[in-house]
Amino acid sequence: MANVANAPRQKVVISTRVDKVSTGARVTSSVRAAIAVIVALIMLIPVAWMAMTAFKTRPDAVAVPPKVFFEPSFEGFVSLLTSRRQLTNDEIAVYQQRTDLGWADQIALIRGQAITGPSAFPRQLLNSLIISGVSTVFSVGFGVLSAYAFSRFPVPGKDDLLFFILSQRMLPPVVVTIPIFLMYRQVGLHDTHIGMVLLYTAFNLSFSVWLLKGFIDEIPREYEEAAMVDGYTRLQAFRRIVLPQATTGIAATTVFSLIFSWNEYAFALMLTSDAARTAPPSIPLVLGTGGIEWAAIAAGSLAFLIPVVIITFLLRKHLLRGVTFGAIRKG
């Protein structure tokens, strides 16, 4: 007897639907795959170009026609990560005699420069990591709690509250930069990590509540109810059942919030100057003296890109996986 009720839960390894296996269908799917690959490659060209530029010397970076094959150099990274001073011709001669120079010093010396210390960039990158990391933890953490409350409890004025939360997102952030700048200066939050964490958390929270509520709504109440009759408190049921079931939503929200606060430019420019300055407003400032340091800018952009790529890569399984709810079947 055809097991209709069980059918959707059985794994179909190879589709046997006529429209999936006919010659026409197979050609169509190959063409589609080819187009997808081509589009992906086109999208990757600027990124690849940036990565290449990061490893070029200054002449190679501005060569016309552009060089695809070149000898890799760490010049860009040295410019990005160090501060240097220009040497006089006499000094250059002295330096060239020295044998105690490290490889970075030697690269600097090619351009007649001596390294005087690390640049501000590593610290700015660290600031970016701290601020966006902590604000993401907060916005996802508070987001999942309030999304759960909105999803499960008869919160008074629920719809109005939800709309109010969403409306926070409708305001273009740039509009409030000046008021926030003035307020932050008053209360001493200007150029502090706490100030930036607070701001990014506030901006991401509206989005994360809405996104997570959608995911939590999809988790059947019976899951927690089963846990509660089985002897768990609601909070325990939330931790043991709801959180694992919401992994996909949490992963997606994490990536979105992280990318927002990681990329945020306008507020970072206005509200930070030194102690809490993040990477985005700093990268364009690596312009260098005498000529634009394309390699350094590309190196900065590359360094800036990598953390997001790593996080997205780590969470890719959850991001790609559709929301599956296993054994509960809707009747």
Binding site: E225, V229, Q245
Partner: peptide, 19 residues
């Protein structure tokens, strides 16, 4: 609270934890 009643509930659609 349900957890204090010592009663087991078998739900219509089983409510097994898929994870």
């Amino acid at each position: 609270h349900p957890s204090e009643r010592d009663i087991a509930f078998v739900f219509q659609f089983f409510a097994l934890y898929s994870h």
